[in-house]
Write a protein that binds this DNA or RNA. Structure first.
Lengths: 205, 205
DNA sequence: CGTCGAATTGATGTCATTCAACTACAGTGG
DNA sequence: CCACTGTAGTTGAATGACATCAATTCGACG
């Protein structure tokens, strides 16, 4: 876990603010540059169960995941976050509750800390940002609903196919057993599903 | 589908604003009274796939549910909404997209229409309301996450037990096959789960 | 190399689905 | 008042999908 205040100034969050959120360059820089940045090595834990989650993480480079443990100690992946994604335990942040989940680096990862204070500040500075943040929230809800619909009824194969469709870039970067965990099936089952698909001449990529 | 502008003025949303949201009586009345109210009979459809959902429904009396159909035409219950609950297709409202889901009355139901215009207006009139609305949104997210966790791994029995715990009052009002649909299992399976539980001396009530 | 975790494969078990028959009950119309 | 009908719920037997357990292979890394 390496602090990287200045060893390199990643401008990716700045770019994100300009290109995706739609801020002007001066606005984006003014908001982005003062933020805290950290680098984590593969396997590092950014948030663990019991911690109160104080901010979102924006991924500038690398890959994170969040997951939780059920009563029997099995992991369930909640979300993956590659470049330009946010990841956070929203319930923990909003309600100031201890987190139920963990956040962990799947690859060496550079992140920006986005605290609630920043959110408020940014929403004042730029109305555009406030609206964008709201949009993120609603996208999150929509995506969760989609996942619930899949879990309510779709077979292992359909879940996997829909995963490929939604996150094709993650296929090569995420270990298979984590994908299985995300889909709610065992690694063995996923292996067999893939075999079946290959047999039916299915080519990803 | 009966319009009930004035045949009886239900004051339940007003009470909700006072008791749950925390507004003063004059504030609550000022906001609540001008709203559109409707009554629906059991079986009526309030929103159907393809419609753009323009507002939330607040249930003053009765019971609603939302559900969607998968490719094979099977229903999946998304949410139930008894008295003092909101129900809405948030994605449809926010993104102005045609709805993927249906909303239907399980019992004869009186609802209040809560449009986005109202939300904005109310947030101006009362800061308390703005904050409360935000809280609703985050509660929604938290609840969806809880459901995902259940669907990722819990057996039919565990899902049912957790349903009982969360919504004990719905047990007697919702037909069993709808609960099964909400849990992502078949009505037959739920029937057997209940039999098992009864056999183990389990009493809901 | 040797080690360790990931992935594959096979044998077997378990849980939920499917399909079908049957009961219970509410609503409808004769 | 009594069939007739349709829907909900239950039950049984057969099937199917995925899990579990164990053995093996593969590949990355020290």
């Amino acid at each position: 876990m390496i602090k990287s205040e200045n060893h390199k100034i990643p401008k990716d969050f700045t770019n994100y603010l300009m290109e995706t959120v739609g801020l002007s360059e001066p606005e984006a820089q003014k908001l982005s540059l003062p933020l805290t940045r950290m680098s984590y090595e593969k396997g590092n834990v950014l948030l663990k169960k019991g911690d109160v989650c104080k901010h979102s993480f924006f991924v500038e480079k690398g890959l994170l995941r969040s997951y939780m443990l059920d009563e029997s100690g099995k992991e369930h992946v909640i979300q993956f976050a590659p470049e330009n994604w946010f990841i956070v335990d929203r319930s923990s942040v909003y309600f100031n509750d201890p987190s139920e989940s963990y956040i962990e680096a799947i690859e060496d990862t550079d992140v920006v800390f986005i605290g609630e204070d920043f959110m408020c500040h940014a929403a004042e500075v730029s109305q555009t940002f406030g609206r964008y943040n709201d949009k993120l929230l609603h996208n999150h809800i929509r995506q969760m609903q989609k996942r619930i619909n899949l879990l309510l009824g779709a077979t292992a194969e359909k879940r996997y196919l829909s995963f490929i469709e939604m996150y094709p870039d993650l296929l090569l970067r995420v270990p298979q057993w984590m994908i299985a965990s995300y889909l709610g099936i065992t690694p063995e089952s996923l292996s067999r599903v893939r075999k079946e698909l290959a047999h039916k001449n299915f080519k990803p990529s």
